[in-house]
């Protein structure tokens, strides 16, 4: 995606793997089986949390970068 000029944010539980693989906009999120899910929350809370994760990803594609970055998890 990035090579073709499309800024792409990656939500993943395995940020180190993403870095090695060459992703540029990396965000720690969730667990391996559900990167944008949290079954321990109630459904409403989970949706609100997920909205927050997606918002962070959107901010990442709106952030100019010089090199790959793992965005902080807050």
């Amino acid at each position: 995606m990035e090579k073709n000029g499309i800024p792409a944010a990656l939500l993943t539980a395995m940020t180190s793997m993403a870095k090695v693989a060459g992703a540029n906009r990396i965000l720690a999120s969730g667990l391996i089986p559900h990167a944008v899910g949290d079954p321990s929350r109630t459904l409403d809370e989970e949706i609100a949390w997920r909205k927050g994760q997606v918002t962070k990803a959107l901010n990442a594609v709106a952030t100019p970068l010089d090199e790959a970055q793992i965005f902080p998890d807050w």
Partner: peptide, 9 residues
């Protein structure tokens, strides 16, 4: 093996 998060790993 197969820890589920970066922090766990």
């Amino acid at each position: 093996g197969h820890n589920y998060t970066q922090d766990d790993k």
